[in-house]
Design a protein around this nucleic acid. Structure first.
Lengths: 116, 116
DNA sequence: CGGTATCCACGCGGATACTG
DNA sequence: CAGTATCCGCGTGGATACCG
């Protein structure tokens, strides 16, 4: 059976997709957004993002970290203290997140196609 | 087609999520992007987005249409001719898509954390 | 406090076949 | 040409329990 490889969504150079691939995760957008305002601890993020489960929060934060978008600093204390903040690279996303936010505020807090 | 209504991830007013919910679909970003340059027929889009299956293309286009972001015009001919274009609402997304594109071009064609 | 580990449901999305 | 219809694998993400 031939291995049949999975080619990327767009052949080469789909910057839009590349960007969405990084911030398009279920919670990444808001996580990034909240971190725009500054460093946050794990549970602080949880409070700001009601609905996210512990597992998903961890997962998404780790992915953002792996993509070099956020920094994760662990303070070897007990009880533990872990702080999340934007990396330099993550900060470059600010215009994007803000564009997303601005659009959402004006055009789509809810889903209402053409409405009345 | 499932009734795709994503209840808001964040309790109230998460414009970032709202926006991502609309354009965050697997192909929506590029679809929107390609339609920015003008009206396209079904197969024209297919050619521009290699890798997308017919089913996914239809699905995503229909969702974008349901969300009022694109227009779908069917010409009652044989063979059929269906043209897709941005709606007024969809056009308001231009800054967002362009921000995504600009960021992707400069910072993330690939996935490379912090590298060496 | 800030996680892991495990289990599992669901729906996204690919492949394929058929149609007006 | 531009779709539907069907089948199904697989990853995503929720719930829960436990750990350093």
């Amino acid at each position: 059976m031939p291995p049949r490889f999975q080619e990327p969504y767009c052949s080469a150079g789909c910057p839009v997709e590349a960007a969405l691939g990084l911030i398009g995760g279920k919670w990444k957008g808001i996580l990034l957004y909240h971190l725009m305002s500054g460093t946050l601890r794990f549970n602080e993020i949880r409070k700001r993002v009601p609905g996210v489960t512990q597992r998903m929060l961890t997962t998404q934060l780790r992915e953002l970290e792996a993509d070099g978008l956020i920094l994760r600093v662990v303070y070897p204390q007990v009880p533990p203290r872990v702080e999340y903040s934007l990396s330099d690279r993550g900060r470059t996303l600010q215009p994007v997140i803000m564009a997303l936010k601005a659009w959402g505020e004006r055009h789509a807090t809810q889903r209402e196609p053409q409405a009345a």
